[in-house]
Design a protein around this nucleic acid. Structure first.
Lengths: 225, 225
DNA sequence: CTAAATAATTGATATTTGTCAATTAATAAT
DNA sequence: ATTATTAATTGACAAATATCAATTATTTAG
């Protein structure tokens, strides 16, 4: 079983708001479009906005001293920056960049907090999103600590298939280096394992196009080794 | 710089509650004492309580198929189980066990949620705690991915010193195996690195008693390698 | 359309880390 | 106090993974 759990969309949260609360958000909204590889949120900058991605895939990653690690790939209808609400450190903890054209709404954080302060159902819905995220990271942490590199790569492929693209054949908007940053491995190692899986007829690779041929065995490898 | 950020206590949250809200909690509270190594929260069981630890040190860990990983060590005046609020999965994501005698209050989760639903300031304070926790785990994830084993051990020692015990000399309530589970390494490797640090006069070891002799160099090792 | 730049791949090698077995130290039970 | 049990330590070795260098493929810029 893959350690990657299905992401949830965040759009229902708006349905919990009154007209006046919605208009607070509307009046403090900036709608923007981002091109592929543009940065939506930059780690270390002041977290002045809560970002809602209406359309497009983006990657969330942490920039360390030596390495980058991709925390997750986000699809449409997700908030970004929620984890910077009410924290002592007033900066974003991660960078988010567009993997394809994205349409986003930036909400001023003050206005967002004003709405949070008024509407407890909304506030609790936000807790739900944050906690869903937390659950994912616990699983992620375990995966990184416990699995060997074959397991990590298998897990990543299953995660992409099950929870990002939702089908057995998909074209990733990621380079091999980014795949490696996602799996937490070196690029060379990642490539070698992908080729190994291909030789074993578990997947079919053509550049960025992936096709899963034997999910059961991939799941077994993900489970251990 | 250590990647371990200072934990915050959660007791101020109660100050945000009205008398009637406090009495909801009081009426749904069970006070218990736990002995060393007893389990307060068991991963995989239904998350029916929010636990407030009034007194005592505990360890939070995830039990994987092969390994355990200690997420963090918690001191007095902390909530446990907040990350299970409003999640789809109704079970605890981690196990918590007492490292010394602990006094805790168990609050019925339904009652806790009732109070959350009534008091938006309380709800937002809870968001603060959850997000503080999230910030820690992002740093943790980076640490595990990026640092080599010497860096991990150095980081752990600094974390214990700075944020769990708050001084340069301390006696850990952890076995060597637990230290290894905290660092995310094998026990043998952990021990070897500790001995190495001792030989290099960075620390002084006597069983479970630690004394930091050269913090600057430990910080440099934690930074990289 | 072609050159230049970047990304992907492969091989060889070094380093890191874990595993297993043996030994010693410390703690608990009688 | 003595034995039994568990925890800590050490050494030897194997396995896993990263690094470096070279090559090939792909993409981009003019």
């Amino acid at each position: 079983m893959s350690n990657c759990i299905k992401d949830i969309t965040h759009n229902e949260a708006f349905g919990l708001l009154t007209k006046s609360e919605l208009s607070i958000l509307e009046n403090n909204k900036t709608s923007l479009k981002y091109d592929k590889s543009e940065v939506l949120i930059k780690q270390g900058t002041l977290s002045n906005s809560i970002v809602f991605v209406k359309k497009g895939i983006s990657k969330i990653y942490i920039e360390g001293a030596q390495k980058k690690i991709i925390l997750t790939i986000k699809r449409d209808n997700n908030f970004l920056g929620l984890s910077s609400l009410y924290t002592e450190d007033k900066t974003y903890q991660y960078t988010v960049s567009a993997l394809e054209k994205c349409k986003v709404d930036l909400y001023d954080k003050m206005a967002f907090k004003e709405v949070l302060q008024q509407n407890v159902a909304f506030s609790n819905e936000i807790i739900k999103y944050i906690n869903h995220n937390t659950t994912r990271f616990y699983k992620r942490l375990l995966c990184i600590t416990e699995k060997n590199s074959r397991g990590k790569v298998a897990d990543m492929i299953l995660c992409l298939s099950n929870h990002i693209f939702g089908c057995l054949e998909f074209t990733i908007p990621l380079s091999r280096q980014e795949l490696a940053d996602f799996a937490g491995l070196s690029m060379e190692n990642t490539i070698r394992i992908l080729k190994e899986f291909e030789a074993d007829k578990l997947i079919k690779l053509k550049g960025k196009n992936f096709k899963i041929k034997n999910k059961a065995v991939l799941e077994r490898i993900s489970e251990f080794g």
